[in-house]
Simulated scan of single mutants.
Amino acid sequence: MSITPCNELLLDNQFCFALYSTSLLMTKVYKPLLQELGLTYPQYLAMMVLWESDGITVGEISNRLLTDPGSLTPLLKRLEAEGFITRTRSNKDERVVELRLTEQGRALHEKAKAVPACILAATGRSIEQLDSLKDELVSLRGNLGKAV
Rank of each mutant, 00 (worst) to 15 (best):
S2T: 15
T4N: 12
P5D: 01
C6L: 14
N7G: 12
E8Q: 12
L10P: 06
L11E: 12
L11I: 12
L11Q: 09
F15S: 12
F17V: 12
A18N: 03
Y20R: 06
S21V: 06
T22W: 10
T27V: 11
K31Q: 08
Q35F: 15
Q35M: 15
Q35L: 14
E36L: 11
L37H: 01
P42N: 04
P42T: 05
Y44P: 01
L45F: 04
M48I: 07
M48P: 06
W51V: 03
W51H: 01
E52H: 12
D54I: 00
G55S: 02
G55A: 02
V58L: 14
I61N: 04
P74D: 00
R78G: 10
A81C: 01
I85W: 02
I85Q: 01
S90N: 02
N91A: 15
N91S: 13
E94Q: 13
V97W: 14
E98S: 13
R100G: 09
A107I: 03
E110P: 10
K111Y: 01
A112I: 00
A114E: 04
I119T: 02
G124L: 01
R125W: 12
Q129T: 09
S132P: 08
K134D: 12
G142L: 00
N143R: 15
L144S: 02
G145T: 05
V148H: 12
